[in-house]
């Protein structure tokens, strides 16, 4: 069963007089519970794919189905709901809210989704696996990059999204922390069946995934 189904997806940017075809007819199917890596050179369109899949920007044409929802037809309200209900983001820069503690960074994500009450057993498990249970009352600036990225992962899956999207999640980390974070993504994927789509330009990082696809000039090729 496919949780992501993309057919002939195009995204065209107009810059000046020229059209930039960042995505030039992408086809992709991602199974539920899969850990997929998208690799490719700089400028090949990886982030653009990430943004479209996450509902951060509308596609120009094609069909994109995420968890059964057709994305091409969505307006901004629909995309907001998609972000709230179906996807979790992990960015290269961790993008935690700097004024809030770790706990509150996780809570605000729940609040936005309208989730109340105490954390479930599974999420407490996630926090333990990520090794951040001792850091709950810290502010982001009191954490290392690796720790911040682990908090960002926890935040991304706190509402159990259909897919976890990660764009260069280890781009700012040293090898040791990269391996730790990638190992954790793999662990979460195996243990909880969390679907993960990770973008990276690093083949070593891609090795943690079940499957790797390559992006070249706005098109996907199986690696």
């Amino acid at each position: 069963m496919a949780i992501i189904e993309i057919q002939n997806l195009r995204k065209t940017f107009r810059s000046g007089d020229v059209d930039v075809h960042a995505l030039a007819g992408v086809d992709l199917r991602v199974k539920k519970g899969e850990f997929l890596a998208v690799v490719g050179k700089s400028g090949s369109g990886k982030s653009t794919l990430f943004h479209v899949l996450g509902g951060l920007t509308p596609p120009t044409s094609g069909t994109v189905k995420i968890d059964g929802k057709e994305l091409t037809a969505m307006d901004e309200t629909g995309r907001t709901r998609l972000r709230r209900e179906s996807v979790g983001f992990v960015f290269q820069k961790y993008n935690l809210l700097p004024t809030l503690t770790v706990r509150d960074n996780l809570e605000i994500a729940r609040d936005i989704s309208g989730v109340k009450g105490p954390w479930g057993a599974q999420f407490l498990d996630v926090i333990r696996i990520l090794g951040i249970e001792e850091k709950m009352e810290r502010k982001p600036r009191q954490l290392s990059g690796g720790e911040q990225q682990r908090v960002a992962i926890a935040r991304a899956i706190v509402n159990q999204p259909a897919i976890l999207l990660a764009d260069e999640p280890t781009g700012n980390l040293d090898t040791e922390n990269s391996d730790l974070v990638l190992g954790l993504l793999q662990h979460l994927n195996k243990k909880f069946g969390q679907t993960v789509l990770m973008i990276t330009h690093d083949p070593e990082a891609a090795a943690f995934a079940d499957r790797t696809v390559q992006m070249r000039d706005g098109l996907l090729h199986s690696a």
Binding site: R83, F89, N95, I112
Partner: peptide
């Protein structure tokens, strides 16, 4: 701007 962007990415309308 950045914090607002983060909230929006998290699904805040």
């Amino acid at each position: 701007t950045r914090e607002i962007g983060i909230l929006k990415a998290l699904g805040a309308g």
